[in-house]
Computed example of a mutant assay.
Amino acid sequence: MTPAPAPASSPEPSRSHRRKAQTRAALIRAAQSFLAQGQTNMPVLEITQAADVGLGSFYNHFESKDQLFEEAVEHVLDLLGAVLDELTSDVDDPAVAFATSFRLTGRFHRREPQLSKVILHSALDLLGAQTGLAPRVRRDIQAGIESGRFTMTDVDVAVVCAVGAATFLGQLLHAEPDRDDAETTDRAAEALLRMLGVSADEARAICRSPLPELHTAELRGAVDEATIDGDAAR
Results as ranks from 00 to 15, higher is better:
Thr2Gln: 15
Ala6Gly: 07
Ala8Thr: 06
Ser9Leu: 14
Ser10Gly: 14
Pro13Lys: 06
Ser14Cys: 05
Arg19Met: 12
Arg19Glu: 13
Thr23Tyr: 08
Leu27Asp: 00
Arg29His: 13
Ala30Thr: 04
Ala30Asn: 07
Ala30Ser: 13
Ala31Gln: 01
Phe34Val: 03
Phe34Trp: 07
Gly38Thr: 02
Asn41Ala: 12
Asn41Val: 10
Asn41Asp: 13
Val44Gly: 06
Val44Glu: 06
Leu45Ala: 13
Leu45Lys: 09
Ile47Ala: 04
Ile47Cys: 05
Ala51His: 05
Ala51Phe: 11
Gly54Met: 09
Leu55Pro: 15
Gly56Val: 06
Ser57Gln: 05
Asn60Gly: 14
Asn60Lys: 15
Phe62Met: 01
Ser64Asn: 05
Lys65Pro: 01
Asp66Ser: 14
Gln67Met: 12
Gln67Ala: 12
Leu68Cys: 06
Leu68Ile: 01
Phe69Gly: 00
Ala72Val: 02
Val73Arg: 10
Val73Leu: 08
Leu77His: 10
Asp78Phe: 09
Asp78Arg: 11
Ala82Asp: 08
Val83Gly: 14
Glu86Leu: 08
Leu87Thr: 00
Asp90Tyr: 02
Asp90Leu: 07
Val91Ala: 09
Asp93Lys: 03
Val96Arg: 06
Ala97Asp: 02
Phe98Gly: 04
Phe98Lys: 04
Arg103Glu: 07
Leu104Met: 01
Gly106Arg: 00
His109Phe: 06
His109Ala: 01
Gln114His: 10
Leu115Phe: 13
Lys117Gln: 12
Val118Met: 01
Val118Asn: 02
Ser122Pro: 03
Leu124Tyr: 09
Leu126Pro: 01
Leu127Asn: 04
Leu127Arg: 14
Gln130Cys: 07
Thr131Lys: 14
Gly132Arg: 02
Val137Cys: 15
Arg139Val: 04
Arg139Trp: 15
Gln142Tyr: 04
Gln142Ser: 09
Gln142Leu: 10
Gly144Val: 01
Gly144Trp: 00
Ile145Val: 08
Arg149Met: 06
Phe150Ser: 03
Asp154Met: 01
Val155Glu: 12
Val157Ala: 13
Val159Pro: 03
Val160Cys: 12
Val160Met: 15
Val163Ile: 13
Gly164Arg: 02
Gly164Ala: 01
Gly164Phe: 11
Ala166Thr: 08
Thr167Glu: 00
Thr167Ile: 05
Leu172Trp: 10
Leu172His: 10
Leu172Ala: 08
Leu173Ile: 03
His174Leu: 03
Glu176His: 15
Glu176Leu: 15
Glu176Asp: 15
Asp178Val: 03
Arg179Gln: 14
Asp181Arg: 07
Glu183Thr: 12
Arg187Glu: 04
Ala189Phe: 13
Leu192Ala: 07
Leu193Met: 05
Leu193Cys: 04
Met195Val: 06
Val198Leu: 05
Ser199Arg: 01
Ala200Val: 02
Asp201His: 11
Glu202Gln: 10
Ala205Leu: 04
Cys207Trp: 11
Arg208Pro: 11
Ser209Ile: 00
Pro212Ile: 00
Glu213Ala: 12
Glu213Val: 11
Leu214Asp: 00
Ala217Leu: 15
Ala217Thr: 11
Ala217Asn: 13
Gly221Lys: 09
Gly221Met: 09
Ala222Val: 04
Val223Met: 10
Val223Gln: 08
Asp224Lys: 11
Thr227Phe: 11
Ile228Ser: 08
Ile228Ala: 10
Asp229Phe: 11
Gly230Phe: 08
Gly230Arg: 08
Asp231Lys: 10
Ala232Tyr: 12
Ala233Asp: 06
Ala233Cys: 05
Arg234Trp: 00
Arg234Cys: 05
